[in-house]
Write a protein that binds this DNA or RNA. Structure first.
Length: 184
DNA sequence: TATAGGATTGCC
DNA sequence: GCAATCCTATAG
């Protein structure tokens, strides 16, 4: 079943761990795409130096302050999008970066979106920029309420992941030592 | 208005 | 190992 508001409006670290094994579902114009979430990172809000909200509320980070369950998509390095899930209650800027998913449904379309650059199935969506390309996620998917949307949401398939690894976050320069990355 | 830099990826 | 590439934030 689709994850409810009450799932997202909890401490960011708890939500990030619980997202492992869930299914990210996006009904793109060309068809349904599904991926099992296999790697996430937690960004705790204004107190976390690596979080975009650390500098305070800006035009870019506005979605982070919405209710839990909204999406937050941003553009990075001039060529890639990253997909986040907003956590915590309104005005609290926590979020979870979805770094990697395992393709479940719509694999052929994911390969088309990736322009054939991924040789193996697992390479289609095993990075934050890659999964957005494979799913066709852009800024038009920014600030979507995934609790009420039928196009973009996360589903609980009755799977609970307890066997995961905890490591430092990847690719950041601030607070890089915090062990807030969860790999299934 | 100008400029530095970033939660990445893929090719050299 | 490093270039590609552009939006955002910040300073002037």
């Amino acid at each position: 079943m689709k994850l409810l508001r009450s799932f997202y409006e909890r401490p960011t670290l708890e939500v990030s761990k619980d997202l492992l094994g869930k299914h990210l579902i996006f009904h793109s114009p060309k068809g349904k795409l599904v991926g099992e979430i296999s790697e996430v990172e937690a960004y705790l809000g204004e107190t976390d130096p690596a979080c975009h909200a650390f500098v305070g509320r800006t035009k870019r980070t506005a979605p982070l302050y919405l209710e839990g369950g909204y999406s937050y998509v941003y553009f990075i390095y001039g060529m890639y999008y990253c997909f986040n899930v907003v956590t915590e209650v309104k005005d609290c800027a926590g979020a979870v970066l979805i770094r990697s998913v395992i393709p479940i449904e719509g694999i052929q379309q994911m390969q088309e979106n990736r322009a054939g650059k991924a040789k193996r199935i697992a390479d289609l969506t095993n990075g934050p920029g890659k999964l957005c390309t494979a799913f066709g996620i852009t800024l038009s998917q920014n600030a979507v309420d995934m609790v009420n949307s039928d196009a973009l949401y996360i589903e609980d398939v009755g799977k609970t992941v307890t066997d995961y690894r905890v490591t430092p976050r990847i690719g950041i320069t601030k607070a890089a030592e915090k062990p807030w990355r969860f790999v299934y």
